[in-house]
Deep mutational scan, measured.
Amino acid sequence: MDLSALRVEEVQNVINAMQKILECPICLELIKEPVSTKCDHIFCKFCMLKLLNQKKGPSQCPLCKNDITKRSLQESTRFSQLVEELLKIICAFQLDTGLEYANSYNFAKKENNSPEHLKDEVSIIQSMGYRNRAKRLLQSEPENPSLQETSLSVQLSNLGTVRTLRTKQRIQPQKTSVYIELGSDSSEDTVNKATYCSVGDQELLQITPQGTRDEISLDSAKKAACEFSETDVTNTEHHQPSNNDLNTTEKRAAERHPEKYQGSSVSNLHVEPCGTNTHASSLQHENSSLLLTKDRMNVEKAEFCNKSKQPGLARSQHNRWAGSKETCNDRRTPSTEKKVDLNADPLCERKEWNKQKLPCSENPRDTEDVPWITLNSSIQKVNEWFSRSDELLGSDDSHDGESESNAKVADVLDVLNEVDEYSGSSEKIDLLASDPHEALICKSERVHSKSVESNIEDKIFGKTYRKKASLPNLSHVTENLIIGAFVTEPQIIQERPLTNKLKRKRRPTSGL
């Protein structure tokens, strides 16, 4: 017993010596996670971090007073192994002897410093981030199933929210409404489509400006004509009531908005009720001829604005009016007729031209339509002016008669200019590109209106002035400009410049 007691005391002394060697000089306990400095002193990692955080910048070693920084600290694995072995020896000594260790306080702390507990403390002390800490805590505590279930439920809930957000973003663009038309193969669909197009076009005519009305009406008319041609002859009974509906809707729209509806009346003529396609083609032919005449008058307007600064050229074209007008009339009417003589009366030419125009518009179905009313009214106005011209010709002399006839021709041009508003800008460009020769010939008609105004002003003063002067240069210039014009009389060319000069002198006297 005595020997055993001596041996136990010796073992205890050895353990105490080893414990003092492996103590931390700051906390005076076994080193936890030993860290060595540049001066080869060993301290606990937790104690050194606490010391360095007390001051900004480098701190001093507690043993040798040298500078220490966080970067200079290094882990010493050898001392950590020695500490672990010492703890194992102490545990074995207690089991063999059955005696508690003399320094129970220190031993209890040593026992608490088992490797499992050290790992837990290291995970908390090290600044490795929240995710690494959570992982280490889960690994160190596998015995708690409640914690695992809560963490898994949190992760699953987070994943569910992310997935639901993604699915919502994908589903939202798919919620856009999609309209699908289910059509049938019955023959009544074509008639319904035609009526739908006509009503939609009328609404567009009321909303859209004048520049786009003609294009819309032309497209709708083409669509309706194609649909009529596709149907068989057996379905004509269905077409006639639908066309009557079209007429009623167009008349109502014309009564409500007459000014807006006139812009599309000329282009919509071939959508009118037709028994066969031949009647629609004839109407299209007549409309094309009318559009040609209207576009020519538009060309004359532009030329008149350009040549208004040259009064000499405008005056020299006075007698070329009849010849150029004959050529335009021959090209406007498709019928083959002989040219009228140069010395014939211009009023007779106008009456013949009106007689040619009237039969074209005397179809029984055309008179029933609303768009032809505008053309009939313009023709009636022309006839009224010609009836007035006959009365004026009986009273005035030959020279005054010529000037009045020219004035009436200008009035006719004004009437025809009203129809110019109905034609589109695209048709003007096509006419100029296809028929430049006709445009040059028809330019002379509009330029002549300037000389007509001068004659009217001469009649106000009650006299006409003449001068025997020749202007050969002007006649040559005008002959080169206009290709299809005829030779003019030299006496009238000489008379016109004198009248304008005298007018300039006598205007201030009349004002006084």
Rank of each mutant, 00 (worst) to 15 (best):
P34L: 05
D2T: 13
H41V: 00
K32P: 04
T176V: 07
L165T: 14
M128D: 07
S151L: 08
S59W: 06
I15M: 10
E149T: 07
S184P: 07
L138T: 03
K56D: 13
R7I: 13
I26R: 02
E116Q: 12
T164H: 04
S153M: 10
N158I: 02
Q172M: 14
T190S: 06
I124Y: 04
K168E: 09
V83M: 05
S114G: 08
R7C: 12
A134T: 04
E143D: 05
S114C: 00
Q169T: 09
I171R: 09
E33S: 13
V14Q: 15
Y130Q: 14
M128S: 06
I90V: 10
K135P: 11
V191N: 04
L159G: 10
S151K: 07
V178C: 03
T161Q: 12
L3Q: 03
L82K: 00
K55I: 12
Q126G: 11
E116G: 07
G129T: 11
L137T: 11
S127T: 02
L49A: 01
M128G: 09
V122A: 15
L156M: 00
L49S: 13
I15H: 00
L52H: 01
Q139F: 03
T77R: 12
V162H: 06
E23I: 05
D120R: 05
N103I: 09
F79V: 06
E188M: 08
A102K: 07
K45C: 02
G160N: 13
G183M: 08
V14N: 06
P173D: 07
P115D: 14
N53L: 10
P25N: 01
Q126R: 07
E116K: 02
E111R: 08
G129W: 15
Q81E: 06
G160P: 09
N132A: 06
L22R: 00
G160H: 10
S186C: 06
K32L: 09
S76E: 03
N268T: 13
I124V: 11
R133H: 13
C39L: 00
L118K: 05
A92Y: 00
A102P: 13
K168M: 02
Q54R: 11
G183R: 09
L73F: 15
N16P: 00
G57V: 15
L95T: 15
Q174N: 03
